[in-house]
Structure formats: structure tokens, C-alpha cells
């Protein structure tokens, strides 16, 4: 099992997002959004990000549900909220600051309905997984052709990969 930092990041991201590694980091990957996200997280949350990768590395042979539980429920708030930030980065192409996310889980959450965030890049937006999980495409970025909306979409598995 390869343990390069990027391998760890992709493995961790797949466990958290539920999207297969082959979809997050396809063999032919000209956009290379994983590198964008890795660098962004490293820049924004260096030490905690490294700690998050280390926790994943130490537990990567466990079943995914167990890994997720360790990261999100047994490793403290700093790790929990950074992990959620990483998930949101993949899903929405935006950086939601972990401290902001934490505020929304407090007894006095902010009044704004959604935490403040920043879109990481155009490519990050058009790589967002929320729309794929909806069996659709990021709004304003369709690779489908005329009339596709009148037919059933490909299966969810076709979008997120993996499966039986």
C-alpha cells in the first residue's frame, strides 16, 4: 500500500466523501483537483492537516466506517471539523473554515443560514461532487447533450464509482 501524502489524502477523502478513489483521482487527471485541494488544505491548516493524514495512515486498513468514526468522533474537534472542511471542499469546491463550521454546532449558532466560505477556483467549482451525487452536473457546467434532461440519468454508481 502506497503511503505518499497524496495517496493518503485521496484515501482519506474517499472514506469521508463516499466517492470512489478512482473518481476522485482518475488515472488520467488533467484537472488534478486533488493537488489543488491538498495544497489548499496544507496552506490553510498545515499541522492539523498533517495530523489528519497521520490518523488516516494509522488506521487505513480498518473498514471505512470505522476509519470515519475514529476521525470524526474520536479524535477531537480540530480533526473533526477539518475533516468536514475537506469533505465540503470535495463536495462544493469551496473552503469552509473549520472554526466557522464549529460555531454552527454550538449552543448559539450564527444566524446566517450557511457558514461563510470561499470558492477555491473555477475548476474546484466545476469539480463539485454534490451535483454528481444528485446525478446531475454543476450548474453552468454540463458535459451532457441536448435533451438529456428528458431521460433518466446514469445510475448513482456510474457517477461515484466503486460499488459491487
Amino acid at each position: 500500500m502506497s503511503d505518499t501524502p497524496m495517496d493518503l489524502f485521496v484515501g482519506l477523502s474517499s472514506v469521508l466523501t463516499g466517492v470512489d478513489k478512482s473518481m476522485l483521482a482518475p488515472p488520467l487527471d488533467p484537472i488534478n483537483i486533488k493537488q489543488t485541494y491538498f495544497d489548499y488544505a496544507q496552506n490553510k491548516a498545515g499541522a492539523t492537516f498533517q495530523q489528519l493524514l497521520s490518523i488516516y495512515q494509522a488506521n487505513q486498513t480498518l473498514p471505512p466506517a470505522q476509519i470515519g468514526d475514529i476521525i470524526l468522533n474520536q479524535s477531537g474537534d480540530d480533526i473533526r471539523y477539518l475533516a468536514r472542511t475537506v469533505m465540503l471542499m470535495w463536495y462544493l469546491g469551496s473552503w469552509y473554515d473549520p472554526a466557522e463550521l464549529k460555531k454552527y454546532n454550538s449552543s448559539k449558532p450564527p444566524t446566517d443560514p450557511v457558514p461563510a466560505a470561499a470558492v477555491i477556483s473555477s475548476a474546484a467549482y466545476t469539480s463539485g461532487w454534490s451535483w454528481n451525487v444528485a446525478q446531475a452536473h454543476p450548474m453552468g457546467y454540463s458535459n451532457f447533450t441536448y435533451g438529456y434532461w428528458s431521460k433518466l440519468p446514469p445510475t448513482l454508481q456510474d457517477f461515484i464509482g466503486g460499488g459491487s
Binding site: 468536514r84 469533505m87 465540503l88 463536495y91 462544493l92 469552509y96 463550521l101 454552527y104 454546532n105 449558532p109 443560514p113 450557511v114 457558514p115 454534490s130 451535483w131 444528485a134 450548474m139 434532461w149
Partner: peptide, 24 residues
């Protein structure tokens, strides 16, 4: 045809809800 994008800025709101454990 755009889900709840107009009403609640989805998929953003629901995605954040399910990842961050809130219910906007």
C-alpha cells in the same frame, strides 16, 4: 428544473447540513 437552488441555495445548504450536522 433546478431543485431547491432558488429557494434555499441548494445543493449548498443541504450538503453543509448533512456534513456538519445541522438542519437549515
Amino acid at each position: 428544473n433546478e431543485g431547491w437552488n432558488f429557494p434555499i441555495n441548494d445543493p449548498y445548504t443541504t450538503t453543509v447540513d448533512f456534513i456538519n450536522g445541522i438542519n437549515q
